[in-house]
Design a protein around this nucleic acid. Structure first.
Lengths: 343, 343
DNA sequence: CTGTTAGCGCTTTCAG
DNA sequence: CTGAAAGCGCTAACAG
């Protein structure tokens, strides 16, 4: 194939007429190198097409410039946005990103994903969908900086189970609360909830916000129906709800399920929002452009990931930030899919 | 932090009372190890929690179990599906995945992403959105196996520019052609096209299919309007088209833009499909559940990525497949957003 | 400011 | 079937 034999620092050193260590200094931008020598070495590097060998460096420094991230379902808007945000935030930081997707969020799958990353000698671990780090069966090497996207104030199982853990996230609970309150304020007696996949922390946070608003208002709390974040599951859940009767307002845990719910309402011969109001969560790009523009809750993924990754990198580099938990506000975006109930 | 000092093969060897080389044999499942010794070593490995050091191994073998992938916009349905498919296909293959996202698809951005990956000593490179490998300024180390998702038969600039390159993809051109033909068969005089981001190969393939169908039918070819794959851009493009007048059928290069286009038609006081037909591309999960279920073109991302990754791995391992190009059929999914033009 | 020496943890090669 | 020796390419620690 004509693969060029790889050139090493020693090769460059020979060409430049200096010691190998001097080449190392130039490559790493260390001080105390005479300008003339630095230039000569750089010329040799360019001519020979030298690239430092990451494995050799990692071997001796015992530290990798790699951050591992476990995520679920990269084609879901939320997880995909977090992945995109983390990648963006890492750009230019000198760290590489390794991603391990998990099929399910049970302990076995998560452990497999974590192990896969740990095997790669990662310097830090990002958990996109937080999991119970206190779980006795779940093993993460001690000393490995961990960041999880969660709502630290929720009292979710994650919090506090690992003292050095970073926990950041949008305040989804408050977001869900304000979505539900919005519906209640419009005059609905109660609000039905189509929740996300069972077991996800995001599901629990949104359920909690919905429940909170219902309780604050003294409204009846209908049983939760679980979907799996997909439009189809939203459609099926809403169909079931409608079948039970008495539904005037639905809060879906993401926009995709809200889309399915709207379709179900319309298939039942009813209109959104005149007969049934529907509110989503995420503010996916299409939410604004649906035939019935969707009222939803926006999370600032870019800001959350930027802050979080910055802190993770600091932790990895031995300068742990004072603030290890942070909640970014989520914002209700009012459009046209929610209205007062019909008389 | 109580970081446990890492245990090496030598540590395990001492504990098991064997040489370090024997531990190496056991770890790598090499033959010629007595069963009793193997068991003893495995016990020591388990007790001590030994994990092989990937950097040390990579250093000596000069080969990494890592595949690099450059992608754009992981929150777009197409790229996200390819990423997901590649990751799935790699699961259990023993290879890790490193992802580098690029902002733009100009040479500078692409080169930066490729360099980032190459620095990580990847064993193979996956290009999600294909680029012109023959571009003189674009440098990819010779001998590095490359896979790009493209339509080999298109005569796109990619093909053939690198003899050992693998090129696989869904037949988007044929998909776009059948979408356009469908509209024409319904009785539309011509079909307007909202194309994807300029410069993407996927954009060109879909434009080509649309043009082909128009030419085959002897229909007039209206100028292409470019969006950027987002619902907003589809909305704006359709608004512009409608403003020009004479539009009865729109083929959008992805479902997200189709969603925006439908919204634009409705905002203009027209109905889909009675007044204007709209067809999308991708068959994203929500397409089926929109208020007007979307007629669209489905690509089998799972199949394409499975096949492609399998061949890439074979190539990396020195057993290049006979077939280096492959086109998977794309399928028109007829729903309710396209109908005959109104009389 | 520059060079020398050692060794990271593993696989390769070659002896036993 | 098992082990000893060498060395991958680089950085750390120390001399000069």
């Amino acid at each position: 194939m004509g693969a060029t034999p790889r050139v090493s620092m020693t090769d460059v050193a020979r060409r430049a007429g200096v010691s190998q260590k001097t080449v190392s200094r130039v490559v790493n931008g260390e001080p105390h190198v005479a300008e003339a020598i630095r230039a000569k070495v750089q010329a040799a590097i360019a001519e020979m097409g030298f690239r430092p060998n990451a494995a050799a460096r990692a071997l001796v420094t015992r530290r990798n410039q790699r951050i591992g991230m476990v995520t679920m379902g990269t084609s879901l808007y939320g997880p995909a946005s977090i992945l995109e945000g983390v990648d963006n935030a890492l750009r230019g930081s000198g760290y590489y990103l390794s991603v391990a997707r998990t099929q399910g969020n049970d302990v076995a799958h998560l452990q497999a994903a974590i192990d896969e990353l740990v095997t790669q000698d990662i310097a830090g671990l990002v958990l996109s969908e937080p999991i119970d780090l206190g779980h006795p069966e779940l093993r993460i090497p001690s000393g490995l900086p961990v960041l999880s996207f969660d709502s630290p104030a929720d009292g979710s199982p994650t919090s506090g189970s690992r003292p050095d853990e970073l926990v950041m996230g949008a305040d989804e609970r408050a977001g869900a609360l304000s979505a539900t309150e919005h519906l209640l304020a419009l005059g609905h007696r109660t609000v039905h909830h189509i929740a996300g996949t069972r077991g996800w922390a995001a599901t629990a946070r949104r359920v909690a916000g919905w429940q909170g608003a219902l309780q604050d208002a003294g409204a009846a709390e209908p049983p939760v129906v679980h979907g799996d974040w997909s439009p189809r599951s939203g459609y099926e859940a809403a169909t079931e709800l409608l079948h039970q009767g008495g539904v005037t307002a639905i809060f879906a845990a993401n926009d995709q399920m809200a889309i399915g719910a709207i379709r179900a309402v319309e298939r039942a011969g009813l209109r959104v929002p005149q007969d049934v109001s529907v509110v989503g969560f995420d503010d996916a790009p299409e939410a604004e452009f649906l035939s019935t523009p969707l009222t939803t809750v926006r999370q600032d993924f870019a800001e959350v990931t930027r802050l979080a990754v910055h802190r993770l990198v600091r932790t990895i580099e031995g300068r742990p930030p004072a603030e290890r938990h942070r909640l970014i506000p989520a914002q209700l975006v009012i459009r046209e899919s929610a209205a007062p109930p019909s008389a």
